[in-house]
Simulated assay, not measured.
Amino acid sequence: MLVTDTSNALPGGSSLLRNEPVQARSSARLAGLLDAAAAVIDEIGFERLTTAMVAERAGASIGTVYRYFPDRIAVVEALAARCTQRLGARFVESIEASGATTWEQGADALVDMTIEMYRTEPGFRAIRFGDVDDGTDAPDSDRMALLGGSVATIFRERFGFPDSARLATAWEVLAEAGHAVLARAHRRRGATDEALITEYRTMTRTYMRTVLAEV
């Protein structure tokens, strides 16, 4: 399953949730809890987040939080999953909107869209995706691998890239590296380090050209 196939809340059957939302009201309540967690994380970072803070910000009882999440780590992990899902869902949109005709332009469009996520998606800037893990081998637990597979599919269909496990792995590597570099470039709100972003664009093109020459 591609990241682009998942919902904006959490995928059905996710191991992150104690109880799956089965009605629209329950889904809205879950989304509200994640929105509240994102707002708090933007303010103080995910290390200091507590379930009580999530409940207070969402205007919900602590019991409502525990209905879905066993602890604060599960909240952070679920928010990271949602952010990654939204990122993947916007990959296709960003390439279509850019009018890219070459894979290099497509890669730049993905970088631009990811930068926009850092600037506008609540909680995205503060979460370090590699630091939270639900401890399972569920299909949706390796988010960077899912992102890599999504991008590999998009570039195969849009730009004629070969169907290659090596390319999927390469995109996963770029997703991991991109998160590290772009998170650092946005570590201070309103003061983006454009030099780091420029170097990441160069690295993406150079690395992908090398991989393409070998597959």
Rank of each mutant, 00 (worst) to 15 (best):
R184T: 08
R90W: 11
R128V: 11
P139C: 07
I62K: 10
L182R: 07
R18H: 13
R57W: 12
S14A: 12
R86C: 12
M53K: 06
T101N: 01
P122W: 04
A165N: 09
D193H: 03
A39P: 10
L33H: 11
T153E: 12
E172K: 11
P11M: 06
V3H: 15
R128M: 03
L146I: 13
V211G: 02
M117T: 04
R25Y: 13
V92T: 14
D131Q: 07
A195W: 02
R90H: 15
Y66M: 01
L79M: 05
G99L: 02
A145S: 15
D42Q: 03
T153S: 13
A185T: 07
T202C: 08
A24G: 02
T202L: 11
G190Y: 13
C83R: 01
D108S: 06
R18Q: 14
S141C: 12
T101H: 08
A177S: 10
P139Y: 08
H186K: 06
A31M: 15
D133E: 07
R209H: 10
R67P: 06
R57M: 05
I95W: 01
R166S: 07
V111W: 02
L30I: 08
E104W: 05
S94H: 06
L167C: 12
A60W: 09
R125G: 01
D5S: 15
E96N: 04
E176D: 09
R158Q: 07
V65G: 12
S27R: 15
T153N: 14
Y66A: 06
F155N: 00
T192W: 01
A89G: 08
L182F: 03
S164W: 02
A31L: 15
V54P: 12
G130R: 04
P162M: 08
P11R: 10
T206E: 08
E56A: 15
L34W: 05
A109D: 04
G13F: 00
R205W: 11
D163L: 15
R82G: 02
G135A: 04
T169K: 03
W171Y: 08
T51F: 04
I62S: 14
F124W: 03
T84F: 12
T210L: 09
A177Q: 05
V211S: 01
G88S: 11
G59L: 12
S94V: 08
G106P: 04
P162Y: 03
V211M: 01
V111P: 06
G123F: 04
E194F: 10
W103A: 01
G123V: 06
W171K: 02
I154C: 01
M208Y: 03
T51E: 13
E157I: 00
D71G: 07
T210P: 03
I41A: 05
T51R: 12
T102R: 00
R18P: 11
G148P: 01
D142F: 13
V3M: 15
I44W: 05
V22A: 14
R156A: 06
M1R: 13
R209S: 09
T64Q: 14
A37W: 07
A168R: 11
S98Q: 03
R143K: 09
A175F: 07
V215K: 00
A52P: 10
R143F: 09
R205T: 08
A39I: 03
